[in-house]
Amino acid sequence: MTHDDDASAKGDLAGFFEAARLGGAEPTGGFMARMEADALRMQPRPMIRRKQSLWRELLQGLGGWPAVAGLTAATCVGVWIGINPPDRLDALLEDPSAIQSVDPLSGYDFAMLEN
């Protein structure tokens, strides 16, 4: 139904309805102040983010307690290897030719690829 149809459908009552729309009960200032006070009183409190300690922020930044435990274990192993390195590691570090001899892709592999 269009607005015009609607107006004609209201017929002679249109003037009465219009008067009611223009009139209506106007709220007083005191009433609106009471309504506003109610709204503010009933309002949930805003979520306040508490400031965290530096240690807690660091802990969260690393990924929590499980991540810190893993890091600690890895550090201990590293320190232990530094203090008491395994014999084979010493031999490897003392003999540079041992490192030079590392051949990830040998001549044999190349020969196989060409075929």
Partner: peptide, 27 residues
């Protein structure tokens, strides 16, 4: 916004809805 604690939203909603509800209830 009201539910998140925004006081301005509380005032805006009251000003917008209060008169409408009052007028309807009065009728």
């Amino acid at each position: 916004l009201y539910a998140c604690g925004d006081a301005a939203a509380a005032r805006a909603l009251t000003a917008r809805l209060g008169p409408r509800v009052l007028s309807h209830a009065h009728r």
